[in-house]
Amino acid sequence: MNLSFWAATPQVQEQLKQLQRYLLKTIDLPDQPIHSKILKLLQSGGKFLRPGIFYLFAELGPNHDPDQLLAGASAQELLHLALKFHDQISDDKLKIPNPGHNQQRNAIYAGDYLFTRYFEEILKTAPSSSEFSDHLKAMQRILTGHLDQLQHRFDFTETVADYFAEINQRTGEAFQFSAEQGARIAGATPELVTLSAELGTTIGNAYQVSQDIQLAFNDQQNLLGSLQNGQYPLPLILSMNQPEIRQLLEKRQTLTLEDVQLIQNQLDQPTVEAQYKQLTDHIDDLLNQLPTGKAQTDLRQFVGRLL
């Protein structure tokens, strides 16, 4: 876990340290390759964004039962890890025509095991039947977003609306779920839970767009890999009507870094930055609707660091 990212919010930082210790202790599988894969991912230096968001929004409620909050935060990270393992299978198929059977099998089992752990932690938060149904629906929407991403590989007809529909289900839904559940489990008012959900979605979408901007304009090597796999960030989608860009993208796996430079030179940076500003302005408006206090301040600081 990247502890330095959370230094400005020491309470959340300490909660995430406890979360990591808990997950490392409770994940205990007899199958050593799968067990090692999960532990390696937990110790890989990620930011623990989703459980961190959960804890930040939990500050909006009066109920701070440590066991329920730990279970709720654990569920957020376990769902994220499960999806990462299943994404690994998809990525391997994109890069390697016939990925190793054992490697693929281990990733499937690891992801499936983490899904079962996700539901185990959810049950510890004592959800009502309607809340448990919400968990299922959110998980389905997140999975649909990941599937939609695969469907748009090498899709020159993907529109900006298609892109935002996809990331809204994938990243936006994941952040929304963490924010909403943090507020709900902490006993926030229904109005604050609804506001938290909208804020989480918008932060998630803005985060994805910011990642796409960074990839498209500042990371040639990873942009090359993305384009060779047919995964187009927002700046590419906005410029897809340019014949020169489409002609280069037709090269698929034979694209070179020189081709990427030519593509970058033709991207419409002002337009994508305007899309990004709309999202960040909306985040500011939503933050202003939160009650004045520590929770609002901490969330402002978090958004500033993230975006």
Rank of each mutant, 00 (worst) to 15 (best):
Q220N: 08
Q228P: 10
T271V: 11
V272M: 08
G230F: 10
A206M: 01
T194M: 10
S239L: 05
E191H: 12
D268T: 06
V209H: 06
T201E: 14
S210I: 00
H282S: 12
V260M: 10
I203Q: 07
L223F: 03
L195P: 11
T256K: 13
P270I: 06
Q242V: 11
L238V: 09
G204A: 04
Q231A: 05
E258G: 07
A197R: 15
Q266C: 06
E258Y: 04
E273Q: 09
Q266V: 03
T202L: 11
Q269D: 06
F217P: 03
P270V: 07
L238W: 07
Q266M: 15
Q208N: 01
K277F: 03
N222S: 12
A206Q: 02
D212S: 04
L199K: 07
G204F: 10
L267I: 05
L224A: 05
I283D: 12
H282M: 07
L255N: 13
E273K: 11
E191R: 12
G230S: 09
L227P: 05
D281W: 01
A274W: 03
E273M: 04
Q264D: 13
V193C: 11
L192M: 14
Q231H: 09
L279F: 15
D212H: 02
L279W: 14
N222L: 02
T271Q: 14
Q269L: 07
Q208H: 00
L234Q: 04
V272S: 04
L236V: 12
T271Y: 04
G200M: 04
M240A: 14
E273F: 01
K277A: 13
T194S: 15
T271L: 15
Q214H: 03
I213M: 01
A206G: 06
I237K: 09
I203G: 02
E198K: 15
Q221G: 01
I263V: 15
L262E: 13
F217G: 00
L255E: 13
N205I: 08
P190I: 11
V193N: 07
L255Y: 13
Y207G: 01
A274Y: 02
P190G: 12
N205D: 02
P270D: 07
P233M: 11
